[in-house]
Nucleic acid binder design. Structure first.
Lengths: 252, 252
DNA sequence: CGTGAGTTTGAACCGGATCAATTAAGGTGG
DNA sequence: CCACCTTAATTGATCCGGTTCAAACTCACG
């Protein structure tokens, strides 16, 4: 709000205590004084433009990032040069955990649109969380939540038909946005169909066909990036149902 | 070693400082005094027998566990009652991270064979890691490594042919065992083919066929659970190669 | 030795990948 | 401001890998 420069996105200087994401973010559970101490180590770099990168593989790991607004995709690049999307990160979500275990990042983090982040220098964060127990707890929560959620999704994807996967993907985005105070039924997919396909492990064409399919069944309205979910329960039903409408594939 | 009871597995009372896994485990980087303090909070419960459970979904989250010897599978159970294997845990690996974010476990952890674990009461661990910086660092490393590794594997699986998946699975087991001082080329798969198929997202029959396939190509010798890898490079080659021997599936 | 769980093998079918071609949408420069 | 170009998205036709269904086999264990 109190910007010193000419043109600057208004939220650039928002302190943790003012941030709308604080209940989902590290500040959760901290009192005023603790919040201030956290604020002191949080950096708020200039927003990234679309396709700008936050870090690359082999960059030295120094910080975790929290998406403030916008969205980020992370991907690795295989030896043959093609890209492997490892995740999409929405506001309030952590980016950079791939660096924690090896001290260098293992993937590329790239903005899908104009995106602003908070930067959390990890070693300062560790020090501080040694002093503020609530912070430590929340850090651990976030770390494991981030990754477990992803893992669960991926695991499920393994056994689902293309239809169910795309449905599950939409649900995941929808639920995450809702948690952050956005609409659960109307949003923009900032990533391309190709990215989605890559992430879900299927051909672009299949992703596209499923969107068409869902539209024909009147579960969603999709116009390019813009998605409107008409029948959330319909989507849920699909995402839980196994291929071929026969026997469930995950055996006992 | 200094067992007080009649029959007890010899390693039951081994302190962290004596444990062969310590360089892979939490003690890594700690000095003598710090190790002692860690040792004080580590519990070493009686070994689990095959198919005994360490915890169930909805159990209150209290502890992380490190597999000392043996192996554990974790799985969730879907609404329709079938099981979804979420991972296999070998000696030196953490179990229980699924509980950190919600304060209750989300899956079942079940011993695949006679298995002994160390129990780490998580809140004591948090407190202690607030005091011992090296411990905190290592805890974070382990937490993220555990999950990131899994995630990477799962992500890759999404785009691989059945052949490549099974190869990648074998490699994963092999590499993890090797890191822990076991043979990389000869080991027992303690889980069933069904478990493997479930985890990898494919039918049991397909898993079985791939084992046969690898044998015919003289990459491995497999007799039931017992696996001997003859041509590790052959397996590696396969695990990196895409289906249909055509174009790579992960697009640029 | 039976009994049953786990594993292997065979045959047929179908979902999704691949290939090919068209349409739509941003961006750019004249 | 519009024609042009490039990239993303859609749609259609064909083909193959992997699932499904069915059945035989093998080993561990009582």
């Amino acid at each position: 709000m109190t910007s010193t420069k000419v043109i600057r996105l208004p939220q650039i200087k928002v302190a943790c205590s003012e941030c709308s994401l604080r209940s989902l973010c590290l500040p959760f559970g901290l009192d005023g004084e603790e919040l201030e101490r956290l604020d002191e180590i949080v950096k708020r770099p200039r927003p990234l433009q679309r396709s700008q990168r936050l870090y690359h593989p082999k960059d030295q790991f120094r910080s975790l990032y929290v998406v403030r607004s916008g969205s980020i995709k992370t991907y690795t690049t295989t030896s043959t040069g093609d890209q492997q999307v490892t995740g999409f990160h929405l506001p309030g979500e952590l980016v950079g955990l791939d660096g924690v275990s090896t001290d260098e990042y293992s993937c590329t983090a790239e903005a899908l649109e104009t995106t602003s982040v908070c930067e959390l220098p990890f070693f300062k964060l560790e020090t501080l969380s040694g002093q503020i127990h609530g912070l430590q707890r929340q850090l651990h929560r976030l770390m494991s939540k981030e990754i477990i959620a992803d893992q669960q999704l991926l695991l499920q994807l393994g056994k689902m038909s293309a239809e169910a996967r795309v449905a599950a993907f939409l649900l995941s985005i929808s639920a995450r946005l809702q948690q952050r105070g956005f609409s659960a039924t109307e949003f923009n997919l900032t990533m391309t169909r190709t990215d989605i396909g890559n992430y879900l492990g299927m051909a672009v064409e299949t992703v596209s066909r499923q969107f068409t399919n869902f539209q024909e069944q009147a579960f969603i309205k999709a116009s390019r990036k813009h998605i409107e979910i008409i029948d959330l329960n319909g989507i849920k039903r699909i995402s839980g149902i196994m291929p071929c409408e026969r026997t469930p594939q995950a055996k006992a």
